[in-house]
Amino acid sequence: MVKYVLKRLFWALVTVLLILFILFLLLEFMPGSPFNEEKLTVDQIRILKEHYGLDKPFFEKFWIFLVNATKGDFGISYNLQKNMKVSQIVMPRLWVSVRLGLQAIGLGSVMGVILGVISGSNQNNWKDSVATIMAVVGVSIPSFVFALTLSFLLGYKIPIFSMIYQANHPFASTILPTISLSLFTMAQVTRFLRTELVEVMDSEYIRLATVKGLSRIKILFKHGFRNALISVVTIFGPLVVNVLTGSLVIEKIFSIPGIGGLLVLAIQSSDYNIIVMVTFIYSVLYIAVNLLVDVLYGVIDPRIRVSKGA
């Protein structure tokens, strides 16, 4: 097990390094520099470049970039807030995004588990059909379509919820964004749990429990549900990715000051350092979640541990 975790950690590290290298290449070949707007002579630019170390050879620059990046220093912003440290712009916004993401995944998982259990334990009747239809719709419709529909209907036509983010009401004003972001999670968890539950409820130890005379509820929750839930853990990698992608557009639609919305702004004004830092955060988050899911899965389910040969 330890060997397996170490191996995974090693590959995760390689991937992070590769991502940093790609991001650095991107910075090298991007048009524009910190000094392209000021009226500077060629000599002045040369002095500035020397001052900021931009005249050094490629790999030395990459090393410096690497060292700074691991310290969380990604340079200064070019356009959005000129000459401000990128980390100072990104960090306060990160928590808004993380909070929204956690809310969405939490709500989605809870709703998904409820719907999945309803659907899996009432196979092929109307409850199952309703849950299945909800799941298909949730998986297919893009989150920004949901967000737009919700904000139009529940924010404008029937103004129950706030249409835009308010910093003094961080929870009440993120209800709509959370719902729209959580729908995909809900749908995926429902689908997955249903399949698993159907399979588990068909297995022999469940039949044994029935023969023993346990009640339906007890069988479902004490024996079936727990085993079905284990495999739901595996889909959290893709779910986190979806929430990240979704947060970009959701934060734009509801004017939430998070890093998703910031990335969109940075893309539109080609503020490369911000783009680099935010994409780096996304990548690390994604890799960390995948690593965690794989390791957790091995811990929870002994069968996986054996077959992976750790």
Binding site: L18, V241, Y282, S283, N290
Partner: peptide, 8 residues
């Protein structure tokens, strides 16, 4: 490794 980088 390619898969380790988020699609987005």
């Amino acid at each position: 490794i390619i898969n380790g980088i988020p699609n987005l």
